[in-house]
Design a protein around this nucleic acid. Structure first.
Lengths: 130, 130
DNA sequence: ATGAACCCTGACATCATGTCAGGGTCAAGC
DNA sequence: GCTTGACCCTGACATGATGTCAGGGTTCAT
């Protein structure tokens, strides 16, 4: 199938499919006489794998490792589990950091009267006048 | 003072100070005969403002708006509060998204035996074989 | 007056992704 | 068979925040 169909089926843009090919994340597909790329269902499956891993928050580099493990029939699931747990921990840290920022902002906003008077603790804190 | 001192005081790299100047986030400072930029304490305060806002999770564009509000003596604090609340909401959404990803990963990892056998639900889900 | 530490500009790199330009290909309808 | 619109190709430039490097000028203490 053409790249457009592969893009639709996988939810990955044509642009990124070509990009993933260039950086070696996916194998270069066969070309027709016209030069058009020709994708198989297996190719689309690999793209779907990438899309799913991306949705789970993995970086492109990590996705590369997961793809290697996926293709390795003799992989130890321990490796995959370890990657997943490390990622989960990282996501947890990031989520907590965002929550902390959110709390700070809400706390500051609580003490901002929010009318047309000029004083505002949010601004004051950022200006270092706290 | 020189850019190096301003960088140390504000915690913003020299590279980024020059960059913020180029994109108009901070005013171009006076130059000495040598061509060296010469920063005042007010300049450093502005840089500190930027650093603090960045720490609170604002994007550079939002920081630009906040800087405008900061400089506007007649600003309505309502505008600042509104920006802050919108940001808090956005941060909350992002945090929740990360938590959701984290839960998915942990759930998958729970069902992965994590030894040297090849089967692994984490991989299976990403491969779409669920 | 010499060397270290500092400053200048400009350019290239990152990462994931978009878009645009200029040009070739395919398929359907006439 | 020819036209037309939809599709594909490559390559290049852009984003945003940041790093780094090169090649060259400045300042200051010894």
């Amino acid at each position: 199938m053409n790249i457009g169909s592969a893009a639709k089926k996988s939810g990955i843009s044509e642009r990124m499919i070509r990009h993933y090919e260039k950086i070696g994340l996916i194998p270069a597909p066969l070309r027709r006489d016209s030069g058009y790329r020709d994708y198989s269902d297996a190719d689309v499956q690999r793209l779907n794998f990438i899309a799913n891993a991306r949705d789970l928050g993995f970086t492109m580099q990590e996705i590369g490792e997961l793809l290697d493990l996926w293709g390795d029939e003799h992989r130890a699931s321990a490796q995959v589990k370890s990657l997943a747990l490390a990622k989960a921990e990282e996501l947890g840290r990031k989520a907590k950091a965002l929550s902390t920022m959110r709390s700070s902002l809400l706390h500051l906003a609580e003490n901002c009267h929010g009318d047309d008077r000029p004083g505002c603790p949010i601004i004051d804190v950022m200006a270092g006048q706290d």
